[in-house]
Design a protein around this nucleic acid. Sequence first.
DNA 1: TGAAGTTTAA
Length: 542
Amino acid sequence: MQRCCRVIVSQPAVLRPHKGNHAASRFCTAGFELPEWFRNPKKDGDSFDGDDHDKFVLPIKSDPVEERSHGGSSKPLSLRPEAASHEDAEFEADFDEASRILTSCFASPEAIVIAMDCCPVRVSDRMVDKILRRFGSDWVAAFGFFMWAGAQEGYCHSADSYNSMVDILGKFKQFDLMWGLITQMDEIGGLVSLATMTKVMRRLAGASRWSDAIDAFNKMDRFGVVKDTTAMNVLLDTLCKERSVKRARGAFQELRGSVPPDESSFNTLVHGWCKARMMNEARDTMKEMEEHGFKPSVITYTSLIEAYCMEKDFQTAYAILNEMRSKGCPPNVITYTIVMHALGKDGRTQEALDIFDKVRRDGCAPDASFYNSLIYILGRAGRLEDANSVVDKMSSTGVPPTVATFNTLISAACDHSQAENALKMLVRMEEQSCKPDIKTYTPLLKLCCKRQWIKVLRFLICHMFRKDITPDFSTYTLLVTWLCRNGKPAQSCLFLEEMVLKGFTPKKETFDLVVEKLDKANLHSAKKKVQLLTLRAAAVKV
DNA sequence: TGAAGTTTAA
């Protein structure tokens, strides 16, 4: 078992929110306005880069730039909108306190339990849910809190909380701990459900432990979860999505005697073959499907079309579209989205836009994903104005923009160096109560690294934290590598440290790059630190 | 997150 995987090293304050939350408040006001220094980066000699070349920490006491932009008012900015009620205020205060403790560095979940014992935080389902969401990328913190909460008098974890925790442990490959939790859920009685086992199977397969995923399916009736068609389909889908369609077929052949397949079982397999570009097998499965009395549906054909689109074989894709129409199984928005998107990606912009007319001719209503794809294509083609006007069209046709809409626009703006427009989009999201996700920030973070806008970067990370979004593995990798490549090895190093502390294992190339750049910059002590981290990360991996 | 589609990214 791998409990004490974290080591105590000095905490890089890259994401340190304690005191932290309050530091965040200076950046992230309730209404979220762009700071003055962002709008006028060069004013008063202030640049995006700003200060803090090596000390890349959140401002704790005061930030003159921020104060200036708010008229130097001494009133501290509030962290969040006024709490709706007294209970809400108490909840938020407790949440901040728990969050503060969890953000300190602990060697093990047990150490967190001890630390938490000294604090008077009130536990509730809501609290556990929010903590697990915020610390979903820090399994030691999440699990420590979870254990502590479970031991509080008068409180029992809900099945949902258990499931979230199972998922987090699985995400970090803490499979022993994960199974321990499942046993606990089973002992309490009736808490293990298909939802739980779905997470288990997906995380195991995601870690390339396909046979363990199949074993998990096989033994799930021991926990009172029925091995029915729905459950089998989850297993098949998991194996297909996690790069093992052959194992999916194997499992299917073994199970079909005891579990009756349905239309989705076959569609799942067809899709699996298509994703693996094994078209003969896909066609064979379609035949088999018909022998079982299931006619191939829009879903089946759409999978085929997608595979041909990925191959850029648009001729065949068009031929299948016609075949579908003639067979009385007309394509739908999803089918068209796939074709349009692939055309756009291939640079065939006009042909892609023609699909829009086809959709209307076929009388099928565009949905948000379809529009999002259209926006993506326009953005890629540099037609940002047009892309923005699609959003207006969406709203006018009763299809509200989604996170992906904004993310696509932000990404397009960043790609065309329109940083301010991208940032304004964040404001628009806030205005429209559209919750950002990690994909919202990635292009912005990358742009900041490229431009060496350390201050904006810090601002964004703060903003993310307030939204309960923490960098994932690829975001950390992006931050580390792009900062390194752009002459900010010291800051890059801090993110690398943070990344390891959160339980992520950076790739060897990432370490090598940082060491190389630190060396070139004569930052020897930082280099030594990174070399130590490399060893520790390797130890964690075992 | 999951029987098909959109946004990040090396």
